[in-house]
Computed example of a mutant assay.
Amino acid sequence: MFRTKKRRPCGSLKAFTLVELLVVIAIIGVLVALLLPAIQSAREAARRAQCMSNLKQIGLGMLNYESSRKSFPPGQFKPAGLTEKRALSWSVWHLPYIEQQSVFNQFDLKFGVTELPNNRPDLTGPSNTVIDVYRCPSTGRIQNFRGNDGRLTGLPEASGSSGHTGNGLGTIDYMGIRGPDWDVINKVSGITYGTEGGSNFTSLKLDRGILMYLQSGGLCLNKNETCSSAVVRFKEITDGATYTILIGESSGRGAEEGLKCNGENTLSTDEFSGAWASDKNISRVKLDPESPVCGEKISAINPAAKYQFAYEEFFSDHPGGVQTLRCDGSVQFLRDDTERDVYFALCTRNGEELISE
């Protein structure tokens, strides 16, 4: 006798219940929540490594410049025929040393960085070039007049003392350091950093960093004369190359703002501090917790954006601090909680401060 298998009723097929599906979805959600921070952390680690690589390339270019020219590049240089605010920054003279000779060759030094032919409406001028090594991949917070394409945008027409707009200028996330603010007191000497030998300069102030401002090379009174900031030779870095910051992160900059304590900041339309070719791509470190601004004690490292875009301090979107390029070509991380005396000391080439590892 043959036996036939009984078919199961359709209603008895095995399947996940709604409760089981919800449990599985919940487990997947928990796993994603656990993995997401790790993924984000890994991505930030990769971006930070790329940022460090950028600074190392800049540092290598700086050392090659110093080796061939016997000094670091000038912080600012003004060709004859231009006003002071139309000077060019160190990052222009540095171009041939980071394999950007073709961009450097396109500059017409008879004109400012905001003018034709350096700054073109179709963004083909040398000032418009977005140079990858000058940009930090972690940059997220940007000033209102900096576009996502890495150029200045939205500025009023005919802005600036030269009567030319800064729209289209390529931006940079790395800022040359002139030194501490002139009024900050050096705790070793007991006098301000803007003095030398105990006497105050009246017409001239002293920058104690590496990339100094135009007038440090002598008064630049005549528009028709060529003017350069004083240049620093390696042997003048008496505090030690490892303990002297050449360039620091100051990401997201666009056009400089004028700080207002009670209200929104105002735009300073002729100060294109975020443009790599602009003379404003150097800064003194000003924010000093011992001299509160707007009633607040603020560190010069990663202050709130309100102060960062007005004061141009160390600033980055790396968690916990900023990366700095030292004069020996090394890149070192400077934490948010770095003591004020330490970061001011690191910004001087000859302050005679002692810094331990």
Rank of each mutant, 00 (worst) to 15 (best):
M1R: 14
F2R: 06
K6T: 05
C10L: 08
G11Y: 05
K14I: 13
T17E: 02
L21F: 07
I28D: 00
V30L: 15
V30K: 04
L35M: 06
L36H: 09
A38Y: 01
I39H: 02
Q40E: 08
A42Y: 09
A42N: 12
E44A: 07
R48H: 06
A49T: 04
Q50G: 01
N54Y: 08
K56F: 03
L60S: 14
S68K: 07
P73G: 10
A80H: 12
T83I: 09
S89M: 04
W90S: 11
W93R: 14
W93K: 10
H94N: 14
Y97E: 02
I98F: 10
E99W: 01
Q100T: 05
F104P: 01
F104N: 01
D108I: 05
L109E: 03
L109R: 12
K110V: 05
K110Q: 10
P117E: 12
N119P: 08
L123H: 08
N128Q: 03
I131D: 06
I131E: 10
D132F: 03
C136F: 03
Q143L: 01
R146K: 01
G147D: 12
G150M: 08
R151F: 13
R151Q: 11
T153W: 11
L155F: 09
E157Y: 11
A158R: 01
S159G: 13
S161M: 03
T165K: 01
T165V: 07
G166R: 00
G168K: 01
D173Q: 10
Y174P: 00
R178G: 01
R178S: 06
G179M: 14
D181A: 15
S189Q: 10
G194P: 02
G197C: 10
L204I: 15
K205C: 03
M212N: 05
Y213N: 02
L214T: 02
E225Q: 07
E225R: 03
T226L: 13
V231C: 05
F234Y: 00
K235E: 15
K235R: 01
E236M: 02
I237E: 03
Y243W: 07
I245L: 14
L246H: 01
E249L: 06
G258D: 13
L259F: 09
N265L: 06
T266A: 12
S268R: 13
E271P: 00
F272Y: 13
F272P: 03
S273M: 08
G274D: 04
A277D: 12
D279T: 06
D279N: 08
N281K: 14
S283P: 00
L287V: 02
D288M: 13
P289K: 05
E290D: 14
V293K: 10
E296S: 09
K297C: 05
A304W: 00
F309C: 03
E312N: 04
E312D: 06
E313G: 00
F315M: 14
D317E: 10
G321L: 07
L325A: 04
C327A: 15
S330T: 15
Q332D: 10
T338N: 11
T338Y: 14
T348E: 09
T348D: 02
G351D: 05
E352L: 09
E353C: 10
I355A: 08
